[in-house]
C-alpha cells in the first residue's frame, strides 16, 4: 500500500480535520459513473475520494493535482457545502455560463485563492447538450501558483454540474494535463 501512504503524506494539510479516509483506485479502462450525472473513462489510475457533491481524483496527491466532479447543484444551493463561508454565493437556475464563471471565482476566493484570472470561456457540448468550458490561473492560500480548467453543464433537471482539473502550475499541471483532457473528452451525460 505504498500509494496509499504516499497519498496521505501529500494530504497532510487537508487531513488535519478529515484524516485519511476512504481513498480508492478508479479502474482505468472501465466506464465510471459519477453522481448520477456524468459517465467518464478514467484512462489513468486515478485515486478517488467521494465528497457530498461528487468525487475528487488525484495521481500524486490532492494538493498537487486533482480532478473534481461537482454534481447536481440545485437552485439556491452553494457549489460546495462544507467548510465554506456561510454567505458563499449560490447557484440559481437562471444562470448562464458567464454567471457560473463568477460563481466559480467566488468559490476559489472563499477557499483562500487570490489573483484569479479566468480566460477562454467558450461553448462546449456534452452528449449533444450545450455546455461550456473555461480556464484559470490563481494563487492558493499559501501562495502556490495554480492552473485549472472547468467544464460546466447546466441541466433543467440535474442543475449545475462541473468537471474540473487543477494543479500546481509548476510541473504538475502539464504532467497530468493529457490524462485530464482525456477524462474531460470522455464526459457523457447520463
Amino acid at each position: 500500500m505504498i500509494r496509499f501512504s504516499k497519498l496521505c503524506t501529500g494530504l497532510l494539510a487537508l487531513a488535519l480535520l478529515a484524516g485519511c479516509t476512504t481513498i480508492t483506485e478508479v479502474p482505468p479502462t472501465k466506464k465510471h459513473e459519477i453522481g448520477g450525472v456524468f459517465r467518464v473513462v478514467p484512462g489513468t489510475a486515478w485515486n478517488a475520494k467521494t465528497t457530498n457533491r461528487g468525487e475528487i481524483w488525484t495521481v500524486n496527491g490532492f494538493g498537487l493535482e486533482r480532478m473534481a466532479f461537482i454534481t447536481k447543484v440545485e437552485d439556491g444551493k452553494p457549489l460546495v457545502t462544507q467548510g465554506q463561508d456561510k454567505d458563499a454565493p449560490t447557484f440559481r437556475a437562471d444562470m448562464n455560463a458567464t454567471d457560473v464563471v463568477n460563481l466559480y471565482e467566488a468559490l476559489l476566493t472563499s477557499s483562500g485563492y487570490s489573483q484569479i484570472e479566468v480566460s477562454n470561456l467558450r461553448p462546449h457540448t456534452i452528449s449533444g447538450q450545450d455546455a461550456f468550458r473555461f480556464d484559470y490561473t490563481a494563487f492558493n492560500r499559501s501562495g502556490l501558483a495554480k492552473q485549472g480548467m472547468v467544464v460546466g453543464l447546466i441541466d433543467p433537471e440535474k442543475g449545475l454540474n462541473l468537471a474540473t482539473y487543477e494543479a500546481a502550475s509548476e510541473h504538475y499541471y502539464d504532467a497530468s494535463l493529457a490524462a485530464a483532457e482525456s477524462v474531460l473528452a470522455s464526459l457523457e451525460k447520463i
Binding site: 454567505d87 463568477n102 467566488a106 476566493t109 472563499s110 487570490s114 484569479i116
Partner: peptide
C-alpha cells in the same frame, strides 16, 4: 474585481 469575488 478581487473585492467582488469576496461576495461582501
Amino acid at each position: 474585481e478581487d473585492e467582488l469575488d469576496l461576495g461582501h
